Simulated scan of single mutants.
Amino acid sequence: MELLELWKKHLERTRSERTTITYVNAVKSFLKRVSTDNPLEVSSKELYQYADLSELSAASLLTHFSAIRHFYKFLTRRGFLPKDSFSEIEEAIEDIKEDYGLHTLYRKPKALEKSQLERIFQKVKGSKYENIYRLFLYSGIRLSEYKSLRPEHFFLDKSGIYWIHLPAEITKRKKERMAPLIGPSREETYRFTEGLSRFLENYEDTLSVNAASLQVYTNRLSKKLGFHFSLHSFRHTYITNLINQGFPAELVKEFAGHANIKTTIDIYYRFSPERAKAVVENFLKG
């Protein structure tokens, strides 16, 4: 394939011989499994299928998806692949890494710190991006799910908070999911709920933006602020907040839409003396 050869020459100039051979073989292995002869027509569905049907070890699977991401990033930068197509591929790869616990091979997913969130929201204050970032932060949705999100997917329960109801056809695993829109504290949750009620009345103007443009904007903001974060960082923060607030693993699994509870526990549940103390104190209050 001409595109593969072009990428290979790039690797030979920028990477070691060992990395070049490993990456090229990984992408060739992937492309043999897809339903098209044109690598530009590969869909996110085929990435998930490659992971699900693979007999590779976790470490090898991580290497393969790192190579695949690099290949498609190269094609995007050279103008062969549209940016929104690469965004879809990149989001799928991040989801796969999370589902299979591949992040744990090199780092734990990092929740945003309070000071980082303050700096982010200070920069986007009063804009549509403030509303959208808070939606990601309070719901834990994936970018791929956000693209199909509509006002009818939200509902207000008797306790006065919103839930998000994602039908099977727009979720990654094609499994229906419901999750509460919850923030770091009760006060922030109700404050967001009040704002969301207004935003849903004018959804297109307050909460809707092209997914590829959103990702590009976020990448640029991350560089401007001087610390790394992505849309997926808000998801990590949402899940971490649930855990810190004492939600059990089986509920966090369902709210996050993980394929199995092992993913939830292995990636997110780490011992925290502060959380342990809070759980004991809550028990004693009862």
Rank of each mutant, 00 (worst) to 15 (best):
E118T: 12
I96M: 08
L149R: 11
P167Y: 11
S159L: 14
R150A: 15
L62K: 14
G79N: 08
F121C: 07
F71N: 00
K125C: 04
F71D: 04
F80Q: 09
F65C: 03
L143S: 14
F71P: 01
I93H: 03
L149P: 06
R107I: 00
Y72V: 00
I89M: 03
K147W: 11
T63N: 14
L149S: 07
K125Y: 07
K83E: 04
I170P: 08
E88R: 12
R150W: 10
E130A: 03
L62A: 09
D99E: 15
L143I: 13
E152G: 11
T76D: 08
I132T: 04
V124D: 01
S148V: 01
K73I: 00
K73N: 09
Y133C: 00
A168C: 04
L156F: 15
F136L: 05
K108Q: 13
Y138G: 08
E88G: 09
I164L: 15
D99P: 00
N131S: 04
R142C: 07
F155M: 13
S60N: 12
G126D: 08
A111W: 03
S66K: 15
A59W: 10
T171I: 08
T63Y: 05
K97T: 03
E88D: 11
F86V: 02
L61Y: 11
L61V: 08
G101A: 10
K125N: 13
K125L: 13
S87R: 02
E94A: 05
Q116E: 15
K108Y: 13
S60W: 10
R107H: 15
R134L: 09
S87T: 07
Y129P: 04
H70C: 12
Y138Q: 02
L105M: 02
K83S: 03
R69Q: 10
K97Y: 15
S115R: 15
Q116I: 04
I96E: 05
D95L: 13
N131G: 05
L62F: 12
K123T: 10
S60G: 03
L81S: 03
L135D: 03
F74M: 01
T76R: 09
T76L: 00
Y129W: 11
L62M: 13
P82C: 06
G101F: 10
Y129S: 02
K147D: 06
F136N: 09
K147L: 08
Y162A: 10
W163Q: 10
I161G: 06
T76N: 03
F136T: 05
